[in-house]
Amino acid sequence: MSFINYSSREINCKIVYYGPGLCGKTTNLQFIYRKTSPQQKGKLISLATETERTLFFDFLPLALGDIKGFKVRFHLYTVPGQVFYAASRKLILKGVDGVVFVADSQIERTDANIESLEDLKINLADQGYELDRLPYTIQYNKRDLPNIVPVAELDRLLNPTKVPWFECVATQGMGVFETLKNIGKQVLKELKKHY
């Protein structure tokens, strides 16, 4: 649910990074935060445990520029990936305009990816959304590691509807902005369709 304010001439959209525990969601936001100029960004808020696992969410507001005199802002959120934070994940999805699913490419995380994607669909359905009808981008992260699943195989497992996907090494920033641009464009195009 985007928020369009005709008085302050702003459009705010919400993008959620979803995926299994330790797949690199927070790392994506940290990289974006590091690489954007101070005028473009707000504080990066991380509600995390003492061991830096996301406890509730990370939040990064990002101003991109203007469209037809309206300031366009994206509010980026991550969910906590650990299985037992299911209730919190559901809350973060409220009002989402676009989803990035971050998959962990490591072989041993294959089941975790599949489970997390199922969990995403269920949680969206609970809020009255359908993944197939939302702007949606997939990111295959941790491509730098040795024990990884080939992309074609990941795509077969996780991407039956053939949405845009990107290979990524979030720690080094590879693919991070490509992913963000892709979901951002999808969200704005969807918004345009509504009017």
Binding site: I4, I11, L64, G65, I67, K68, G69, F70, V72, G184, K185, L188, K189, L191, K192, H194, Y195
Partner: peptide, 13 residues
């Protein structure tokens, strides 16, 4: 404001 937004406007951003 979205009525006349073009794909180019979005790309531009």
């Amino acid at each position: 404001p979205f009525a006349e937004i073009t794909d180019e406007d979005i790309d531009q951003l």
